[in-house]
Simulated assay, not measured.
Amino acid sequence: MNVNDFDFYLPEELIAQTPLLDRTASRLLVLNKQTGEIKDDFFSSLLTYLSPGDCLVLNDTRVLPARLFGVKTDTGAKVEILLLKQLEGDRWETLVKPAKRIKSGTTIRFGEGELVATCVEESDHGGRVLEFQYDGIFYEVLDQLGKMPLPPYIKEQLEDQERYQTVYAKNRGSAAAPTAGLHFTEALLEAARQKGVHVAFITLHVGLGTFRPVNVEKLEDHDMHAEFYQMSKETAFLLNQVKEKGGRIVAVGTTSARTLETIASEHVEFRETSGWTSIFIYPGYTFKGIDGLVTNFHLPKSTLVMLVSALAGRENILRAYEHAVEEEYRFFSFGDAMLIIE
Results as ranks from 00 to 15, higher is better:
Asn2Arg: 13
Asn4Pro: 00
Tyr9Cys: 03
Leu10Cys: 00
Ala25Cys: 04
Glu37Asp: 14
Glu37Lys: 15
Asp40Ser: 15
Asp40Gly: 02
Ser51Ala: 12
Gly53Glu: 09
Asp60Met: 04
Pro65Arg: 11
Leu68Ile: 02
Phe69Trp: 07
Val71Phe: 11
Leu84Ser: 02
Glu88Ile: 06
Gly89Met: 09
Leu95Gly: 00
Val96Leu: 00
Lys100His: 13
Ile102Tyr: 01
Thr107Ser: 12
Phe110Leu: 11
Glu112Pro: 00
Glu114Gly: 00
Leu115Gln: 06
Ala117Ser: 11
Val120Asn: 03
Gly127His: 08
Val129Cys: 00
Leu130Val: 03
Gln133Phe: 10
Gln133Trp: 00
Tyr134Val: 04
Ile137Ser: 14
Gly146Lys: 08
Gly146Thr: 08
Pro152Ala: 01
Tyr153Gly: 07
Asp160Met: 04
Lys170Pro: 03
Gly173Val: 10
Ala176Gly: 10
Pro178Met: 02
Gly181Glu: 02
Ala187Ser: 15
Leu188Tyr: 03
Glu190Asn: 14
Gly196Thr: 10
Gly196Gln: 09
Gly196Asn: 11
His198Ser: 13
Val199Pro: 08
Phe201Ile: 01
Gly209Pro: 07
Gly209Thr: 08
Gly209Asn: 09
Phe211Leu: 07
Asp223Lys: 14
Glu234Asn: 12
Gln241Leu: 09
Lys243Thr: 11
Ile249Cys: 04
Leu260His: 10
Ala264Cys: 12
Glu266Arg: 15
Phe270Ser: 10
Arg271Val: 15
Gly275Ser: 09
Thr277Asn: 02
Ser278Asp: 15
Phe280Thr: 01
Tyr285Arg: 06
Tyr285Val: 03
Phe287Val: 07
Lys288Thr: 13
Ile290Tyr: 01
Val294Leu: 11
Val294Thr: 07
Thr303Cys: 03
Leu304Thr: 10
Ala310His: 08
Ala310Val: 09
Glu326Cys: 01
Glu327Cys: 06
Gly335Thr: 09
Met338Ser: 12
Leu339Glu: 02
